[in-house]
Design a protein around this nucleic acid. Structure first.
Lengths: 229, 229
DNA sequence: TGACTGAATTTTGAATTCATAATTTCCTAC
DNA sequence: GTAGGAAATTATGAATTCAAAATTCAGTCA
């Protein structure tokens, strides 16, 4: 008997697992905004499921910090304060540094080549100041570095923290100065990877993240006065 | 009206939240052993709750890596393989290092004094080779360092990883040589804290964790042949 | 008008129910 | 006696139900 196409096969994940993803995405890319109550009923209707699996998913999202549960008043999308960023970024920093060290030691030629290509494409987006395209490739490159680090635990921890700040991170319009700086850092990242210099890559990634934090900070400061509640 | 004893007060957390703790503890301190299926029914009876909140808790524990869910066959306590340790320890390492740097900068005299006391008490337990007493204080000291780092995100991430390995970590009988080494490292930790030398503390913590990993490795290697499945 | 009270409604947390998948038991054929 | 397979049992995933809490709304009185 012939095996079914893996792509067409319905990999029957449990509903709650699927929902963690779907609802998480709604939050991360801003379709549910911070502070807003999670509309349980509406989401049940939208996804065609009952409250049970949805609520299971919300518990998981709460453990990951994307939603906040208050007793007898349900779930709300977590807000991202400046204090949160001050907590999260340093942790992301050391995780990225570790990823860099491991990746430099373990990355294959093939993976490196792919990153080089993405980097080149990213430069083109930068040239015409196409932020969305830039970010998409930027994220791919970072993911590839974590993949090359071959440490699923490390990647998972990072992903979790990244999700908490991404909605801020990827909305933050960069000033041209910071953007240029960021591109330069990416240049150095690729160079360090090619030299397989883990220490240097770690340092670059840390500096890069600091740049990002500054970008976000600027954005958040501009934003928060206009967000009353 | 007089206030009730906090210990007797029923702080009405949601059931699932309470259960994440209780079941998590069962796993972490080995009352449910790795590989074993989580006895849903039995736990419901034991805690006097229905399956709904228990299953919510299991989803959260699965996200934290303490249990593993397989479609249509429920939850089982996750096993800890050597490969897991190779993933988890490096991450814990960088988190501890960061905690050390932050703690050195932020710790108060009072907190430092408390750590000094615990350290002294720990030495007494070491003198008579009282492993349980030693571990209890050891853990307190590490917790205190994270508390002094004033970064809840950092602490939470660390706690999560620590839970995954603790059942191995705190069962592992240390060889006398490694134990002595460990005590020496603790000595250096306190010294670095007193000097508020973050860099040095980070280095010591990293070395200390490496020692611990070696301890666990030895234990796991001895163990695994006798565990058939 | 406007603050307060209390009933009606909605929302939440958790138990129960129900359909389906997995496992066990028991029977049959060899 | 054992392998195979059907029926019974149990476990699992998810929907539904139910009680209690929160919220909304309406009416009363100052």
């Amino acid at each position: 008997m012939s095996r079914m196409e893996p792509s067409s096969a319905i990999v029957r994940r449990s509903l709650h697992d699927e929902l963690v993803d779907r609802v998480g995405r709604l939050i991360v890319d801003g379709r549910l905004s911070p502070g807003q109550k999670v509309p349980e009923k509406e989401l049940c209707a939208r996804f065609g499921v009952s409250r049970t699996p949805l609520r299971e998913a919300l518990k998981v999202l709460a453990a990951e910090g994307l939603v906040t549960l208050s007793p007898n008043r349900g779930a709300a999308v977590s807000e991202v304060t400046e204090a949160d960023l001050d907590e999260v970024f340093p942790v992301m920093g050391v995780l990225e540094a570790l990823a860099g060290e491991l990746a430099a030691a373990r990355i294959t030629e093939k993976e490196l080549a792919r990153i080089r290509n993405w980097h080149a494409a990213m430069l083109k987006h930068f040239a015409v100041r196409d932020l969305a395209g830039y970010f998409a490739l930027n994220e791919k490159i970072h993911d590839a570095i974590f993949a090359a680090a071959r440490n699923e635990t490390l990647s998972a921890q990072y992903r979790q923290l990244a999700a908490r700040v991404r909605r801020v991170r990827y909305v933050a319009k960069m000033s041209d100065r910071l953007w240029t700086k960021s591109v330069g850092e990416h240049e150095q990242m690729v160079a360090a990877l090619e030299a397989r210099d883990g220490r240097r890559l770690a340092a670059v990634l840390k500096r890069h993240l600091a740049t990002k934090q500054r970008t976000v900070r600027v954005w958040l400061a501009k934003q928060s006065p206009s967000v009353p509640r």
